[in-house]
Amino acid sequence: MTSELDGGLPVHEWGSADADLPGILLLQEIFGVSDYIQQRGADLHALGYYVIAPEIYWRLDDTELDESSPELLQQAMGIVSRLDWDLAVKDAVAALQYLKARGKGTGVVGFCFGGGLGYNVAAVSSPDVLVSYYGSALKNLLELQVTATSLHHFGNTDVYLDVDEIVPNLGAAEVHRYDDAGHAFDNPLPMFHNADASALAWRRTEDFLARHLPTSQG
């Protein structure tokens, strides 16, 4: 289901805002709110959460992607290069504030681009928990202070991130690293996917959320 928050920000929604469930802000990869991200939204809702995923590219024109194209990554990089980061943070914070207003607890879960965006959002608007999968902008955000209870996943063969540099700057966060897994290893596209790392990371995400953002199903 898709709706709009005040100000016109479109969001995909799993569950009812009126439900007595904690809320999770799900933040997209550079590929947008793709079928994969929508599946993760459904997965999180199945765990007992009300979930929203904002269309962070909503202010841009020409953002349609062809997931079958061999130039998919280049296309997505072209889109994200046109994005105003500060406006993206503002939009994501607005979505988190919407969840906070429900008064039932909040979490942020982000993948790749969304993992970095989620870190920035958590630094300025303090959800209860943050789950970041290989946040692509983390290297530029480490001066920010995140007080939320946090979980980070990284692949040890990630060629986009210097994981050894990032991890020591994450403070008390729970961090897991996965051998033979590269960047975006949770994405099911063959160019990225590592099935073993994906499955283990998701089990750890489920456990982390159950411990730190419990639901009536927990």
Results as ranks from 00 to 15, higher is better:
Ala95Ile: 10
Leu96Val: 09
Leu96Met: 09
Gln97Leu: 06
Gln97Asp: 13
Tyr98Lys: 05
Tyr98Glu: 07
Leu99Ser: 03
Leu99Met: 03
Arg102Tyr: 07
Arg102Glu: 04
Lys104Arg: 15
Gly105Tyr: 13
Gly105Met: 02
Thr106Met: 00
Gly107Arg: 01
Val108Tyr: 00
Val109Ser: 03
Phe111Lys: 03
Gly115Ala: 12
Leu117Arg: 05
Gly118Met: 13
Tyr119Trp: 14
Asn120Asp: 15
Asn120Lys: 15
Asn120Ala: 14
Asn120Gly: 06
Val121Thr: 09
Ala122Glu: 11
Ala122Phe: 13
Ala122Thr: 12
Ala122Met: 13
Ala122His: 02
Ala123Leu: 10
Val124Glu: 13
Val124Trp: 08
Val124Gln: 13
Val124Met: 05
Ser125Lys: 12
Ser126Asn: 15
Ser126Ile: 07
Pro127Trp: 14
Pro127Thr: 08
Asp128Leu: 08
Asp128His: 12
Leu130Gln: 08
Leu130Pro: 01
Val131Ser: 08
Ser132His: 12
Tyr133Glu: 05
Tyr134Glu: 06
Tyr134Ala: 03
Tyr134Pro: 01
Gly135Ser: 11
Ser136Cys: 11
Ser136Lys: 09
Ala137His: 15
Leu138Met: 15
Lys139Met: 08
Lys139Tyr: 09
Asn140Met: 11
Leu141Val: 04
Leu142Cys: 06
Glu143Gln: 12
Glu143Leu: 05
Glu143Ile: 04
Glu143Gly: 07
Gln145Pro: 03
Val146Ala: 06
Thr147Leu: 10
Ala148Asn: 11
Ala148Met: 10
Ala148Arg: 01
Ser150Trp: 01
Leu151Glu: 11
His152Gly: 04
His152Trp: 15
His152Leu: 12
